[in-house]
Design a protein around this nucleic acid. Structure first.
Lengths: 368, 368
DNA sequence: CCGTATTTGTTCGTATGTATT
DNA sequence: CAATACATACGAACAAATACG
């Protein structure tokens, strides 16, 4: 209201406070350093001890310093080391996606043990929303972040936000996927390459020759499952045919797996099995195949991924890969807690890979 | 370190500070009110003006009050609407339950529009954990709570915590259920009584005579769906038979719906339809009936509730009641936002009842 | 508009208590 | 035990902003 923000430096306590703050920010006074005693300061600055105390109390309140009875006043370790908020942010792409609830449940289980709470954010798999989330979270009192990157395959334009997290000393753990430039950061993910390999190899082993792949283009998982698919084909000496792979984007209306399969059928493409990105896609593919008059698994085998509730219904069980959802969440939370306690550098195993496990249902049939 | 958190009340500035804080939180001092002047307080509390200033400075720093040079000291507007945390807590019973992800998604959709974040808590449907959650949340910087009460049918032992929420002016909205003593508080729920009535009436209308009910005993939903079930029976002049109703508790291993149905079959109880608490239970009941050699719906009709993913599989579709999950979450969030903006008393429609809608599948068959 | 009383803001001095070294 | 350093408390004075007759 009144112009008291101008020339406050004439106030003795303000000048002293400002002086000390500058020394701390410039690094002349480092973290843990002991400040001159109140009496020393009162002599040095020619002010009363009360005035010194007023200046110190402002700095203490702002978190720059802390006083210890009988010992002295010290510079805080981290100006930004967030206080005891006991909040951990969890950023996912979708909330009601068929696997996330259980992942979040796992995270919650691990965090609740230590009295932490979850601040939930979701990005709808949009990069700009992810940036917005991170910006909002930087304003909040959180101790760490567990994040599933959106469209992890695409180059990340907002690296600066992750840099800011580091500056503020807010550790983060990636789940499900990770930007390629950040593969050294803490992360918990499935070995999707091996998963894609395992399930493709299974199809090859039971005699399939023309295996179509349907993969999501815009995240790491899709890329890696595809890599495994290629690896399995090459291992048995089979040619990799790019035309046998359907790439789709989440929001993309142009390439819908259902339509893409339909088109392949119309083109009379050879096909005796379809490896799908996940269970949801597998069901779409099966619907397309059935609508085109093919039987699964008699005519064409189909595999899923994630072993979600979709994989199991009364008489039909998808052959798929186990996704240990709660476990993954729990492991990510435990990794983050460990980093919070011991520091990121002290934690040896920062990259946790979960081994994929094949679940054989009745959506595939042996050939010949 | 030192026991300075005990009996701090002997410190004069602390006592004064605490006194004032309580008056503010209790509402004796309202937002915008002018506090007694420093000199008045120093006389009233028999302490020096410096001590008064120390107490006031703490409150000012914490955001409870603000001082204006030459005018006086005033109670902040924001204490009641806790500062600008933009955090809303969401407390549910379970996280990965088959309907919650979508409810939370709906809440998030509405809150994200206004830049709010969700702090997620879950109680595992335990009353003591609910109390713990609320205690933890009282420590946090939240503007409001959306809560699904745990075991809403049982009397609530921690009313004092809800009272504290009121003291702190943290508004809360119940979803799914509500403690009976708090039916005047804001809430968004399904009209479960009508739902139970609708689905039972449907079974009666297609000619069923011996309708068994399976209901959850420890929440309001179970009670209300049961009420509707009774109402439908009585409306058509049918006797209500308590022995035709199976009551179960979530954690209770003693009464499991599957076993209870099995036992009824062994006792050769007359039964041509089963009204179930929800889809999950319906599937258990169907499994029990099939294991006992009965066909659904040919021999016995079965209904669910919630219209979850479980209700639909390739060839089998449960007759059930629509649970508008996202919508419910969105409505609850919007109600809370309205209360935050306009105050609880200004909001006319504090109790929102969602009309149940019947979804007819192929799990029921007309009799005679 | 002036003057006075009120109220908060700043500063100094002093004394006593309590924790640490 | 003594010295040091922070914590609490009181008293006093003056400055600056505001309210009010």
């Amino acid at each position: 209201m009144s112009g008291h923000n101008i020339e406050q430096k004439q106030l003795k306590y303000f000048k002293l406070m400002d002086d000390l703050k500058e020394q701390i920010l410039k690094g002349d006074i480092k973290a843990g350093d002991k400040l001159p005693s109140e009496n020393e300061l009162s002599v040095a600055y020619q002010v009363s001890r009360q005035t010194v105390r007023k200046a110190l109390s402002i700095l203490e309140n702002a978190g720059y310093i802390f006083a210890q009875h009988g010992r002295g006043t010290f510079c805080s370790e981290m100006v930004h080391r967030s206080r005891n908020s006991r909040n951990i942010a969890v950023v996912t792409t979708y909330l009601s996606d068929y696997i996330f609830p259980r992942v979040i449940d796992g995270i919650d289980t691990a965090l609740a043990r230590d009295g932490y709470s979850i601040i939930l954010k979701n990005t709808h798999n949009s990069r700009s929303r992810e940036a917005k989330c991170l910006e909002e979270l930087l304003q909040k009192d959180i101790e760490g972040i567990i994040i599933e990157p959106s469209k992890s395959q695409i180059y990340c334009k907002h690296m600066n936000l992750y840099q800011k997290l580091e500056d503020y000393n807010i550790p983060y753990v990636f789940i499900q996927g990770c930007f390629s430039k950040m593969s050294h950061k803490p992360q918990v993910l499935m070995d999707d390459e091996k998963g894609g390999y395992t399930i493709t190899r299974y199809l090859l082993d039971i005699g399939h020759k023309n295996i179509v792949g349907v993969f999501k283009a815009d995240d790491m998982q899709g890329q890696n499952r595809h890599k495994g698919y290629v690896m399995a084909l090459q291992e048995v000496g089979m040619m990799y045919d790019p035309d046998s792979v359907i790439w789709f984007h989440t929001e993309d209306r142009k390439v819908h797996p259902y339509d893409a399969i339909m088109q392949m059928m119309n083109e009379h493409k050879k096909m005796d099995a379809v490896v799908c990105y996940n269970d949801e896609i597998a069901l779409q593919v099966i619907r397309a195949l059935r609508d085109a008059g093919r039987k699964v698994p008699e005519d064409i085998s189909v595999t899923g991924y994630d072993n979600s509730y979709m994989a199991v219904s009364d008489d039909f069980r998808l052959t798929t890969i186990v996704h240990p959802q709660e476990k993954l969440g729990e492991m990510a939370a435990e990794l983050l807690l460990k980093i919070l306690q011991e520091g990121e550098d002290a934690v040896a195993e920062k990259r946790i890979m979960i081994e994929p496990k094949l679940v054989i249902g009745n959506s595939c049939k042996e050939r010949r």
